[in-house]
Amino acid sequence: MPDKIKFTIDGKDCYAEPGQTIYEAAKANGVFIPVLCHYEGLKPVGSCRICSVRANGRWMTSCTQPVTNGMVIENATPEVEAYRKAIIEMLFVEGNHFCPTCEKSGNCELQALAYRYQIMVPQFPYLFPKREIEAFPGFLLEHNRCIQCQRCVRAIQTEDGQKIFALKNRSKDLRINVDLKLAARMTEKEVQKAMDICPVGAILKKEVGFRIPIGKRKYDQKPIGSEVEENK
């Protein structure tokens, strides 16, 4: 394979197309790297950091970093996995994640990653921040569950590129801010897309909920990432 890039993940020989990110290349080689903020088709922003790997000894986010020839990637090592686990735990304590009451439970990517990493209790103390729930014509924005991944910011814009969802504030007060006027014009399809793209239960389409029975939800039986690993 002369045009292909050769690299290794945890000692396994892998091949990539030029220009592929570490995440894309790993996936193509049947290796799962967890992501939360990344979503196929959207520009990566490297905000959640869960896809961090050690590439040639340096920490990098695999969703933003192009793979290079001869790259040596540590992915499922105890250190990398422990650090990723810590990030998931940070997200759980930073917001208010009451899984039993959440309609995204069972289909939530944050929760699914916590299951995959067998998190029984976070190593960090719960912060119980005060956050709002906002209502818009077609949907609710549950800030308690928002992880500021910016998927909605990137995916849902008007035809002329105006942001319906944008970041507001900074630091621990960083929130998703919705443009009232533009949100009022969102079609039902767009609202559905926003809800589907949200990895957690922060964007909720009104008048539906708890449709899929327990046991049949996306992550009830098989861990997140198993679809990639079955591709080996």
């Binding site: 905000s47 959640c48 940070m90 997200l91 103390p125 912060l127 970041l167 630091s171 621990k172 960083l174």
Partner: peptide
């Protein structure tokens, strides 16, 4: 650092609050 973090990434945004605690 807690005040000046832009909040974009999780470890800096949430981690520093927890570290301080």
């Amino acid at each position: 650092f807690i005040e000046e973090s832009c909040g974009w990434c999780v470890p800096c945004r949430a981690g520093n609050v927890l570290l301080k605690k």
